[in-house]
Design a protein around this nucleic acid. Structure first.
Lengths: 160, 160
DNA sequence: GCTCATGAGTTGAAGCGTCAACTCATTACT
DNA sequence: AGTAATGAGTTGACGCTTCAACTCATGAGC
């Protein structure tokens, strides 16, 4: 990809587009993290884990599949679920079908937590991302996002 | 911002646009960090610091101003510059004009480092962000980015 | 001149993510 | 049956970021 010197710098149009994108990539995760931290005291990754569990059948998932849904490593998930378990929001048990798997189960308290947290987070997404755009731009954003993510490793898109 | 339950969920178009954006925000920083780590052994923040210094008059800047340019806290910058100093890429001296300030000076080795690193990073930005898009989409992206970043705290856009 | 307020910068502790090493259950092979 | 291979999950160490507490130089007010 980068063996020797390439002189292909960015022109004005490209530089402006890139700076705008860099601004988003820098500020948007920070803003969403801040909202969740302030209103719910959890990280965005913890939110994603709880949300994924809340939508699963019986509100339970195997750790390895949950890690895929949440776009994180199994190690990261293991650390996080340990914290969530300490909070009483998730419980871990070995899978009866196959002892190699661990099943993460959302508790009643965990369900209450995600139910209380989700509307505010969706509202933040709407305010920060969707509301500033016209309907046409929302469509354009979808196309642009698909093209860019297509060039990276594919992603399993999940809910807000 | 979020006091009680709001029922304003996302429709299909909005959800798809948001998922595309979430994919970018998740994967793009990871991909750019990985490129820099692999090709230069530095983080994206370290790259931004070196790049900002390389473009400053005399290749030197006050820490506090450098922190603004790099979009980071002074504390974070202090830790990072300590590492960069250990590598021999930056030197710190008290500002002769005002002893409260510290001036970070890019060394010759630091200059060589950023000169060697920048083309590959710009190339990665081009490959991952610009190349997948049509010219029209590049323009749309700029507008979309400006609108979204406008709704967040403003940013001092800086070079690639 | 002295004291105090201000703000730049540093430092160390704590939290989170990554990486590599490890355990363990199951399956495949002989 | 016995052994090795595989892959899920956990763990601990390390690195980076944040936060709060601290030092220190300067300027303002008396």
């Amino acid at each position: 990809m980068t063996s020797t010197a390439e002189p292909r710098w960015l022109n004005d149009e490209e530089r402006q587009a890139w700076m705008a994108m860099a601004g988003i990539v820098f500020a948007l995760p920070a803003a969403l993290d801040a909202q969740l931290q302030r209103d719910a005291g959890i990280t965005h990754f913890e939110y994603t884990v709880l949300a994924a569990l809340s939508e699963a059948p019986d509100r339970r998932l195997r750790m390895s599949y949950l890690a895929q849904l949440a776009n994180g490593s199994l190690s990261r998930l293991s650390h996080v679920v340990k914290r969530l378990e300490r909070q009483g929001w998730v419980e871990r048990t070995p899978d009866p079908q196959d002892g190699r798997f661990t099943v993460a189960q959302l508790t009643e308290a965990g369900w209450d937590k995600i139910v209380a947290t989700a509307p505010g987070h969706v509202e933040a997404v709407r305010e920060l991302v969707l509301d500033p755009l016209t309907r046409a731009q929302v469509k354009q954003l979808r196309e642009i996002g698909l093209r860019i993510t297509g060039g990276l490793g594919l992603d399993i898109p999940r809910r807000s």
